[in-house]
Design a protein around this nucleic acid. Structure first.
Lengths: 151, 151
DNA sequence: CAGCACTGGTCTCGAAAAGGGACCGTCCGG
DNA sequence: CCGGACGGTCCCTTTTCGAGACCAGTGCTG
């Protein structure tokens, strides 16, 4: 189980990827953000095999990213984003922005507009202190508490 | 080949994920951003099987995310980020931010500091027109040129 | 309220991908 | 010019995925 062990590494990129880094998981979440909640709707939109979808939904629920709600009346269950799941939106938007830039020869298939404004959502990287827009070159990694706690 | 077909869907989230959505690809890129360039360095840091690493590096080079440079003298090859690869940084930072929030009980393992400043890099979602920080609730999808071009 | 289509979910089996070595030519420091 | 490290390929086993059969509960319809 070489791969699962990666979750033990103290790295905040590696750990989420053990959950999110597979063919379908982020696509399922993309559908969730588009308002999809029902098992068959995910299936119809993505063409994902039933058993695979089942696995992924269960795992996302276990991780608290989705919540499975089956109204007491015993209706068909719904999978909806939790707060934790909702907070993954910037990840999808960052991917979309890259996709728009490099994989959309005809221009963006979808505009993600700021509701009630003519602007568009834009995933940017900025300094939380001085507010400057920054790139990878402007970043210096430095050990934080999660790493120092191990010693 | 149900899965590969997803790349044909006009969606700027789906298309990048056909390239990036697997166990190792984003982890390899994470190492790249950390300055790793040599085959065995990736291997040592990630514990990825040789053949797998070879596949992924080749694919990333084919997609122009990494460039394989073998100096004419015939030295050991180096894999380094292209502009296109470099632009994936916000994706990794968005994942990191989520990881810091939900998968780092002891606090962030690593601070990504703005060089020469006391602030930290922060992947935020904002409106490119009014500059407001926005969330998924504030976004309205709307057909763009890439979709309209199909009709 | 009986019948029937749909829905979420499980199981199985063949196909595809991942993991883990063995192996091999090239590079390079001594 | 030798020996170890390096990048890369191949092969075989294990794991995961894909596609479909199957099944019990739901809920619409007549």
């Amino acid at each position: 189980m070489r791969y699962e062990e990666l979750a033990d590494i103290p790295c905040s990129i590696t750990r989420p990827l053990v959950l999110l880094g597979d063919r379908w998981t982020l696509l399922i979440l993309k559908e969730s953000f588009a308002g999809v909640r029902r098992f068959n709707a995910f299936r119809a939109n993505l063409g994902i095999p039933r058993s695979r979808l089942q696995d992924r939904l269960t795992r996302l629920v276990e991780h608290g990213v989705l919540a499975r709600q089956q109204a007491d009346g015993g209706e068909h269950p719904e999978y909806r984003l939790t707060r934790k799941g909702h907070d993954l939106y910037p990840v999808l938007m960052a991917i979309r922005e890259w996709g728009d830039a490099y994989m959309a020869p005809d221009g963006p298939p979808v505009h993600y507009r700021h509701t009630g404004c003519d602007g568009e959502a834009h995933a940017s990287l900025e300094c939380d202190s001085c507010g400057t827009r920054i790139s990878a070159h402007d970043v210096t990694p430095e050990a934080g508490p999660g790493l120092l706690a191990l010693t």
